[in-house]
Design a protein around this nucleic acid. Structure first.
Lengths: 210, 210
DNA sequence: AGGTTGGTAAACAGATCGGTATACCTGTGC
DNA sequence: GCACAGGTATACCGATCTGTTTACCAACCT
């Protein structure tokens, strides 16, 4: 599973790192349009000139923010997947565990990609590809965990069934992100994980019986 | 099922109606912060003075936009529920049908409430209550359709099970809204509806067997 | 010794933001 | 006959927006 994209268009000097850190926090908490570059510079303890020397434009900071957030999420996810072992069911459940841990620390307002998408109308905006890219990647992850990437392990299921089940898992996962961000009810990731477990047990049972 | 809230803080003169219509379209398509009052007034064919005479502030237009969108969604939903008849399972599936129809016409960018929430950081903002109110109402709807509101019809299930299943349906529904808005895959409402049907069949079967 | 890199400090530019003010017009109800 | 509600048209306000400019400084690499 390669970590595609993110060729890092910007050299991350110490100041640039502080800018990106401040921007990430502010963009996520208050929204992209609501945060000005002056505020980002002030919070990073940096002058506006430095900010524009490093990033060139606010738009570029937005792209870098999203790409960086995606990268950090995938790193957290990779750790959970590694700890889960080779069984498809365990690996799928590990995704929900990873999301629960991630959201507890960085997800008080739900999915940063979905939130950014709400503020970006232009589909040709470079951030748009980062956003939809992550969602596509997550869908491929779910279906891949159940099908192709499962290898010859017990619990692997047929491709068409992996596609269908992967999409359902995707819906549960996205729903949990929203429910968490809007505090619809407590512990949505646990709820989603439990449902995923039931689904996998049925599918795995059927696969084992086949 | 009462349509609570929305006491309409504003007298809807013809001009005000055009303002609200233009604001609704622009806010949803481009985001709230990205749209200025000058643009709203211009699109509505109205002067800024009229706009401020009717609504008093942009914030008020935002609140009215969300409350109105919520109201119109509930009207569409009510029609679908009415056509579905008294059986809980049919009524739950009707929610997904309603969302599919609604999203095909007004949902190209996903859930307007979730998108607005992404732009509003202040929890004391009057729009915040409208947003979380709708989500809570939807959760109550799902659990109610399966439990209390089901009356003495066949297919009614135990309260704790209605709560659990209602939350799962909520996750599927929110996930489908996101998947639709970000075009993660085709026809997410159909996918969610199919899964809901499977879940309801299992729960209803268990209830019937009890 | 000297150029390059990564900074600070601070002023500035042009546009746009939400919101207000003044003057004038028109239909309706009493 | 006349006030009033609901408008148009237009100019204006201070604040904030993204982005630029000029001047100076310290560290590092050759």
């Amino acid at each position: 599973m390669e970590t595609t994209g993110t060729p890092r268009r910007v050299t991350l000097t110490p100041a640039a790192r502080r800018i990106l850190g401040a921007a990430a926090r502010l963009f996520y908490e208050r929204g992209i349009h609501a945060v000005g570059v002056d505020l980002i510079a002030a919070e990073a303890g940096v002058t506006k000139k430095t900010l524009y020397d490093r990033f060139g434009s606010k738009e570029q900071i937005v792209v870098e923010y999203l790409a960086d957030r995606d990268e950090r999420w995938r790193a957290v996810l990779a750790r959970h997947l590694e700890a889960a072992g080779p069984e498809p069911a365990a690996r799928v459940l590990a995704v929900f565990d990873a999301s629960r841990a991630w959201s507890a620390e960085h997800g008080a307002k739900g999915c940063g990609m979905v939130n950014a998408h709400a503020e970006i109308s232009d589909p040709s905006h470079p951030a748009h590809a980062v956003i939809t890219g992550q969602k596509q990647w997550m869908l491929t992850l779910f279906t891949g965990l159940l099908g192709d990437d499962a290898g010859d392990v017990a619990g692997r299921i047929a491709p068409e069934e992996a596609g269908r089940l992967g999409r359902i898992l995707m819906l549960l996962h996205e729903g949990a992100l929203v429910a968490h961000g809007l505090r619809v009810f407590a512990d949505p990731f646990v709820q989603a994980r439990e449902e995923a477990r039931t689904l996998l047990a049925a599918a795995g049972g059927a696969a084992a019986a086949r």
